[in-house]
Design a binder for these strands. Structure first.
Lengths: 231, 231
DNA sequence: TCCGTGCTTAGTGTATACACTATCGGGGAC
DNA sequence: GTCCCCGATAGTGTATACACTAAGCACGGA
């Protein structure tokens, strides 16, 4: 793989997984040394991450991993609602019904107990997103949704899903997929709206609970993370 | 200004204005020499343009200015509809009414005869967009809309606006601004929908007319544009 | 005559050196 | 004692050199 691409993917994964927490300072020479690339491709990677909104240039000399606060989550779900409702409508008009009928069946049969079952469920959602992207046939929309999903990964990590919510989420996805398969654009859009409303409510509740519990792991000692060479 | 920023803005303007037409090949060394920067900042600029979708890497060695065809315009207006309707709703809920009431007045008074009046009208639309962005208070949405507007500049250039359409467009904007000022989210969204429907219809009609007329300026001789040093 | 192989060259990917700037700390002056 | 200024240092911005890859062309063999 190209060095710049490698640096970009690695940093993005580390930010999304929380290995590089919000506020961590990314110094070019340090990160370049750590990732085994030189400064030029690393700068390219940083530039892409800035464009993504995952890192920001706080001052001309210090680039940090961006934070995700309640207001960001609110904003993220506002645009997500706009994009996914539009995508659902377009998919309902254009999609191959059989594909989404099959996905609806899979959502109906999904069992969500155990860790590997959870992974399988997330893979199913990823396949659903892929099918949606393919069905809407709109590169601009797909790219915008991709950007939203990039940020969503971090939000999901903040808010641990509970089993009941996952069960409900599967049922909601099943309805959306069925509506698309049936070519019912209104139902697909409204079911998407409902799904996102419930998802946001669950995330905010989960966040409230975490904060009430003292939020033990949410704020690691940033001083130790400023220099990632020892990681 | 930083060299990379300068290269990015210059190239973007040239693409948007048509000085660099669709299909023009951008060779790093040539463009770097032409713009008076070295390859490193030029590569940064190209990377950003690729991310914007204004240029594409056709093969590992040749990056070209992307084309805008009918299907792109369709796709662009699909996502634009989604984003601007959402923005209109949010603005209606959050905006300072006085700002949009004033804008509505200006749209009501806009006179569209003559070249400089047209420029003034486009500046008014730009101020409306700014006010909208400020009112929605959503960086993700603003960024996505910014990307859409980047492409829209080229579409506008393809389709020359006629005076009647501009008159109607002003009236439509006036209604949208008034609805936002009044806090009427439904009306703002529906008026936006109508406006975008009319704008798209007008553009497609204009495109049809241009193609029927033989489209004299639309396809310059690309061979002469491959090497932009003599431009 | 056609196909395959090797060479040449154009062009990009990466590393590194150099220059410029901002920030922080210390010292001097008021 | 405090504030301001100057210098040192860290870190980024840019240029350039080198390496690697892919494509085109020519030459030789079948």
């Amino acid at each position: 793989m190209r060095a710049g691409e490698h640096a970009y993917r690695t940093l993005r994964n580390e930010i999304q997984s929380g290995a590089l927490p919000a506020g961590a300072v990314l110094v070019e020479v340090e990160q370049a040394a750590r990732l085994g690339v030189s400064r030029t491709p690393l700068r390219e990677a940083l530039g892409r991450l800035v464009a993504d909104g995952l890192v920001a240039q706080q001052s001309p000399r210090v680039t940090v991993v961006t934070d995700v606060d309640r207001d960001d989550i609110r904003a993220l779900f506002e645009i997500r609602r706009a994009l996914e409702e539009a995508a659902a409508r377009l998919a309902a008009a254009r999609a191959d019904g059989a594909v989404f009928a099959a996905l609806a069946d899979e959502f109906g049969e999904a069992h969500l107990a155990g860790g590997e079952a959870l992974d399988a469920y997330y893979r199913l959602i990823a396949r659903f997103d892929e099918a949606l992207d393919a069905a809407v046939e709109n590169d601009y929309l797909t790219a915008a949704l991709g950007n939203v999903r990039t940020h969503l990964v971090r939000v999901r990590r903040l808010a641990r899903d509970n089993p009941e919510r996952l069960e409900a989420s599967a049922a909601e996805h099943r309805l959306i997929a069925a509506a698309i398969a049936a070519g019912d654009a209104d139902l697909a859009a409204h079911a998407t709206h409902v799904h996102l409303h419930n998802a946001l409510a669950s995330i905010l509740r989960s966040l409230d609970a975490a904060e009430a519990a003292g939020d033990p792991a949410a704020r690691a000692d940033l001083a130790t993370l400023t220099h990632q060479g020892a990681a």
